[in-house]
């Protein structure tokens, strides 16, 4: 069955359908990559309307806690061999919002990310390059984010709940806190 797996990986690499979650300033980079100047369709990458049809989930910028909830929900709606592309430095370490109280710092803690594209809004060439890199990863069998999610499901869920369902205040010194009703 292994050669069947290789053949499947070959095809999966050649035809990756992308659902881009346009948040932050990354969204504006995508139209040029799709249209005639950079044309990502050459690589078999087509933008899709629903998570059901998509293979790649492209997160294009910073994610606040609220929007993270929607991303997790969309990610879980995609079907099995699925990959996540973190786009721009905001997904790597929070980017310019590194010290913000509402923006998550590392996407990887909440959903398995296969490939990050560094740059504070990388250019379309970087996106195309990431697609090619992802194709190689898939061929080499290293792009196993979705299996990682299944294996460490509780861990991921714990991280997510830590952010979503906080029960205790985060900072230690509450005494001069003038808490409103």
């Amino acid at each position: 069955m292994s050669e069947w797996k290789e053949l499947a990986d070959y095809f999966r690499g050649r035809s990756m359908w992308m659902l881009h979650y346009c948040t932050g300033c990354g969204a504006i980079e995508l139209p040029p990559t799709m249209t005639s100047r950079w044309d990502m369709e050459r690589f078999g990458v087509v933008p899709m309307a629903t998570p059901r049809q998509a293979d790649i989930l492209l997160i294009t910028g910073y994610l606040s806690i609220k929007s993270l909830k929607r991303v997790v929900y969309t990610y879980e709606q995609m079907s099995a061999p699925k990959w996540v592309l973190g786009f721009g430095s905001c997904t790597i370490n929070g980017g310019i919002y590194w010290d913000s109280y509402s923006v998550i710092k590392r996407l990887d803690k909440y959903i398995p990310v296969d490939l990050y594209i560094a740059g504070c809004m990388p250019r379309p060439e970087a996106i195309l390059d990431s697609f090619v890199k992802l194709r190689e990863l898939i061929k080499k069998g290293e792009a196993k984010g979705y299996e990682k999610y299944v294996k460490n499901f509780e861990w991921y869920k714990a991280n997510q709940d830590k952010v979503f369902r906080r029960t205790t205040p985060v900072l230690k010194k509450p005494e001069e806190v003038t808490k409103s009703a």
Binding site: N93, G94, Y101
Partner: peptide, 13 residues
């Protein structure tokens, strides 16, 4: 309000 400490505490980077 020290936002850096908060974010490190919450997001454990």
């Amino acid at each position: 309000f020290n936002t850096l400490v908060y974010s490190e505490e919450l997001f454990e980077f």
